[in-house]
Amino acid sequence: MSRNSAATPTLERRATRAAAADRVADAAGDRPRRRRRRWAGVAFVAPLVVYLVVFYAYPLVENVSMSLHRFTRATYITGEAPYVGTEIYREVLTAPAFVPTVQQTAVFVVGSLVFQYVIGLGLAVFFHRHFPLSIVLRGLFLVPWLLPIIVSATTWQWMMDADSGILNRFLGLFGLDPVWWLGADNSLWAVTIANIWLGIPFNLVILYSGLQNIPADLYEAAALDGAGAWRRFVSITLPLLRPVSAITLLLGFVYTLKVVDIIWITTTGTGTSQTLATWAYGMAFGKGTSAVIRYSEASVVGTILLVLALVMGVVYLVVQRRDQEA
């Protein structure tokens, strides 16, 4: 905040100077020069606009258009894709797989976010108090992030093997029955656990840097007033971490919503582990049990995912604005 207010006068001053320059130019009757300057402005903005149109607007429009036309493999050759309006949307929304897939996606996203955030925050607070080897240990927690997902997902698949996986052997030590982790009924929890593990470093890093921005004297003052550790956490850490938490959760939501790789490698999206993202992937490329390519259906699901992410973005903006007003 304070840095911003210091910057504003300089900017204002510069703007005033530019406006004054314009007036001088006007007074001289030098209109072409002004027009030229406008063109220069356009030229400066153009690369960004071109980039946005080519890499953002065009694919989005194409995706929506694909969901309104019936695309088949032959479309690529003949170019024939009859316009069918919202017919494909109706087909997808009434498909028997739709409601369970949405529920599974909700469990996957909410479960992942809650545990990633809570564990990430706990670790961030833990590492905030410096102690010997804390930097090394914190570095080790980043390993899940650095490993290629094909490696970590395959390792999870081995560990969760029902017959000889290490997880079931561990349970066996306590006399518990082996769990069929990757079977249809449990696969949603299995991939959620793997995804939580994968997302903790991200939460840890961002929340840790958020913690470092909280002035230490606040804690000192609170301690002098007799506030215990828990009270300091609830009344200082959590409120001051709010903006950082909001962006962590928003980014986490978007990342988790579109997760395909870890699910696909461990279970191929079978059983309850099918989410909207893996469903769309299977249909778009004819993988898994979706041998026939269904481009249009996949782009319907893609559009739904997009709208969901957009809604979360709006929620984030609203929360942020309310925070600023408060």
């Binding site: 093997d161 029902a162 017959d163 990757l182 461990t266």
Partner: peptide, 8 residues
């Protein structure tokens, strides 16, 4: 008789 991993 068969490993459960047969599903994948």
């Amino acid at each position: 008789y068969a490993p459960k991993s047969a599903i994948t």
